[in-house]
Design a binder for these strands. Sequence first.
DNA 1: CTAGACCTTCACGCCGACGTCAGGGTCAAG
DNA 2: CTTGACCCTGACGTCGGCGTGAAGGTCTAG
Lengths: 149, 149
Amino acid sequence: MRIGELARRTGVTPRALRYYEEQGLLTPERRPSGYREYGERDVDAVHGIRTLLAAGLNSATIAEILPGLPLPGRRRPGPTCPELLNGLARERARITRQMDELAAARALLDEITGAEAPSEAIRRRGASGAPTSPSPQSSDRRLVRPPRA
Amino acid sequence: MRIGELARRTGVTPRALRYYEEQGLLTPERRPSGYREYGERDVDAVHGIRTLLAAGLNSATIAEILPGLPLPGRRRPGPTCPELLNGLARERARITRQMDELAAARALLDEITGAEAPSEAIRRRGASGAPTSPSPQSSDRRLVRPPRA
DNA sequence: CTAGACCTTCACGCCGACGTCAGGGTCAAG
DNA sequence: CTTGACCCTGACGTCGGCGTGAAGGTCTAG
């Protein structure tokens, strides 16, 4: 398909798609006329790109991990590069921190609007320090903890 | 206290603190010399500002809701302005969406690195569409739903 | 009195993911 | 052939939360 169709099917502007190519995130074929020709897999790829961009990863980082992205249900190609995995772990940690910050901000908004958290939330905050929210427990539900960076 | 001390106590640069004032987020007193003089409450205010900024609210929005922020444990001054509450509800929704996006991105990273979610996660993803993750349940644990915007 | 730490107000720089022209090809339908 | 929808490659603009000087007052210890 050409860029316009991919744009419609992904909800991303053609400009953005060209930008992704410029950044090495997509590498469409070219027709003799110079027109870009995209495949079906690019639809999934674009969705993945948008997801990661929305999470705050920059295009350079995404470019590194995209080769493992297509994910049409195939086996993991293996532990990829070791230092890459390290970087991914940091990104993951970053995302988790960001989720916690968002949760804190949301709780703050709820406090302002008077809409307290689920039922048991008549608690006061200490003058300063930890928010003392109802079990502020990290948003990371994962069991296996990453190696101490 | 002067700007330097507030900066040290909050971990925010003096430049940022001046910027906050410029944006109407802080309104410190002034000494005859022109030096800014901050109060204790400004420490909490700055923390609140940083929390909200980190959640993606812009300074203009924060400026609107900050009057209700100091939160030294005092009673809610009331439902504030009605259209303001509406805006806050939208911000809250935005934050919740952002949390969901982060969760999706994190799951994607886990998929790439091979680290699947808690135990039961040998599921495949459909060719396209919903991620079919283990109960992707919205990050919003609140009981009372906001009015249908 | 003087050094030096701290403060003041401009005012330009930055970054990243695009938006938005400008100027010009491609291509299928009529 | 012409129209109109689509595509191409530059290349500059944007936006927000500051960073980073520059040029100059303030204040306190010695």
